[in-house]
Simulated scan of single mutants.
Amino acid sequence: MKTRKISTSHFTLTRAQQIMELSRPWVLLAVYVLLAWQQLWWLAVPVAFATCLAAFVQLHDSIHQSLGLTKKSHSLLLTLSALLLLKSGHALKVTHLRHHGQCLSEDDPEGEPAKWTLKEVFLNGPYHIFTLRFASLRIAPNTRRLQLLETGLTVLLLVGFIALYSMTGSLVGLVYWAVAFVLSALMPLWASYIPHRMAHRNPARLAGAQSAQFWTPIISSFAFHHLHHTYPKVPTALLAKAARELPEPEAHQH
Rank of each mutant, 00 (worst) to 15 (best):
I6S: 02
V45F: 05
L146A: 12
S105R: 01
L239N: 01
R244Y: 00
F181P: 00
G125I: 03
P46Y: 06
F56M: 10
S211W: 10
T216W: 10
A55C: 12
R197I: 00
H99K: 02
C52D: 07
W177D: 05
V33E: 14
G89D: 00
V31G: 12
A135I: 08
L34R: 12
W37V: 13
T236I: 00
N124F: 09
V27W: 15
T14L: 05
E110C: 01
G125E: 08
V33K: 11
S220R: 06
L118G: 07
A30G: 14
T143A: 11
S81F: 05
C52W: 01
L246Q: 05
Y127L: 14
Q102T: 04
L13D: 03
V57T: 15
F49A: 15
M167K: 15
C52N: 09
I129G: 07
P141Y: 13
L171V: 05
L118E: 06
P25D: 13
Q253E: 11
A185L: 02
H225C: 08
F161L: 12
A251T: 11
W37K: 15
L189M: 04
A178C: 12
L158T: 10
W41P: 13
F122Q: 04
H196S: 06
Q253S: 03
H90S: 08
A185C: 10
L149G: 06
T79L: 13
T3H: 13
K93E: 07
V175W: 05
P25R: 10
G173C: 10
A223L: 03
L118W: 04
L22S: 06
A55D: 06
G160F: 07
S66C: 12
M198E: 00
E150S: 09
A44T: 07
L53G: 08
F214R: 12
L206V: 10
R4E: 13
T216F: 11
L164G: 12
R15H: 13
F130P: 04
N124R: 15
P126M: 09
A243C: 11
A48N: 06
A199R: 14
E21V: 15
F214G: 01
L84F: 09
R201G: 03
I219C: 08
H74A: 05
